[in-house]
Simulated scan of single mutants.
Amino acid sequence: MPGSDNRSLLASIHDVGPGFEREVDQLAGLLTNTLGCSSFAMLVVPDHWGRHPIRSGTPFASRLRSWSESGVEMFVHGWYHKDTVEHRGLPGLKARYMTAREGEFLGLSCCEAARRMEAGRALVEDIIGRKASGFIAPAWLYGPGAMEALRDSAFDVAEDHMKVWIPRTGKVLARGPVITWASRSTARTASSLAFAALGRRMLHPMRTIRVAVHPGDVTRKSILSSIETTLRCFAGSRQARSYQSLLTTPGVE
């Protein structure tokens, strides 16, 4: 088993935007207090469902910059987060069962995926005054067009359910399932709580553990308790780090 100095805990808050400011505040406080630092990521949605645009010069933009300056990593997380494409076959099953119409990049063409990626990168970097850490598609779902666009993009890091990789080269930086929670229904909540509990027992041999939280998590006390328990479980034996640190840590794959 790798030494604890080489083992990482990567935590992230998804769906960051002005429509979920209160929830993001609560989650950021939970992560900071539990980890004892600001070594986690925020996944920024430029205009969540076309209803909550982020604009330079606004109070929320100032908050993003402040979080970034405190050490929080900023990722581009799609543009709308909403999937408006009609899918068939396997993509249709993914769109229906893996997310509630939020896999924005599952059915986009390469051209449209590249346009949204670049627009998101430009917006986030203009606001925070530094390079975005990477790109993570909404619901971790990438179609062929998105994968092609990502390979040609300027992003250093990407992530899906099972790995973190370098888009330009395809090199895998970390493997293993991300621990996350679902609040949309009682059944989904129960299954996510069970998976988190299983992960706390079974995933310790992994070099890199990933934990992802969402604004909806704050609506269920059972999920908040599970998040805190999971973070404390892994933080005791590994360092909370940034995704960017994987680029300079030898042997992380």
Rank of each mutant, 00 (worst) to 15 (best):
G29S: 13
E73T: 11
N33R: 15
I54L: 06
G57I: 03
M42S: 01
V72A: 04
D25R: 13
W49A: 10
R51H: 08
G29N: 15
L64Y: 01
G36I: 03
E23A: 15
L31P: 01
W79Q: 05
D47T: 03
S38F: 14
W67I: 02
T84I: 12
S70K: 11
A41S: 15
A28P: 09
V72P: 05
L31T: 06
H81C: 00
D25M: 11
N33Q: 15
I54C: 05
F75C: 06
D83V: 04
R51I: 04
H81P: 12
V45N: 00
K82M: 01
G78A: 05
Q26N: 11
V45S: 05
L31N: 09
L30S: 02
K82E: 10
S56G: 05
S70M: 11
M42K: 07
C37R: 01
E21A: 14
E73R: 12
T58Y: 06
T84N: 10
F75V: 03
R63V: 06
G50N: 06
L43G: 05
D25K: 11
M42D: 02
M74V: 10
D25I: 04
S39K: 13
G71T: 14
D83Q: 09
S70W: 05
G71Y: 08
R22H: 11
Q26I: 11
V45W: 02
P46N: 11
P59H: 09
D25Y: 07
Y80M: 08
E73P: 12
A61H: 02
H77C: 04
P53F: 01
H52P: 13
T58M: 13
D47H: 09
G36F: 00
P46W: 03
K82N: 06
P59N: 08
S62C: 07
S62P: 12
G50R: 02
Q26K: 14
D83I: 02
I54W: 03
T58C: 10
R22Y: 01
K82V: 01
Y80N: 04
R63M: 11
H48G: 01
H48M: 10
S66L: 13
N33F: 02
L30T: 07
G19H: 01
L43T: 05
G29C: 12
G36E: 12
G36W: 00
D47W: 08
F20T: 15
R51G: 04
V24C: 07
G71M: 09
P53Y: 00
A61Y: 02
R65Y: 03
E21P: 12
A61F: 09
L27K: 05
L31Y: 00
L30K: 04
N33H: 13
V85C: 14
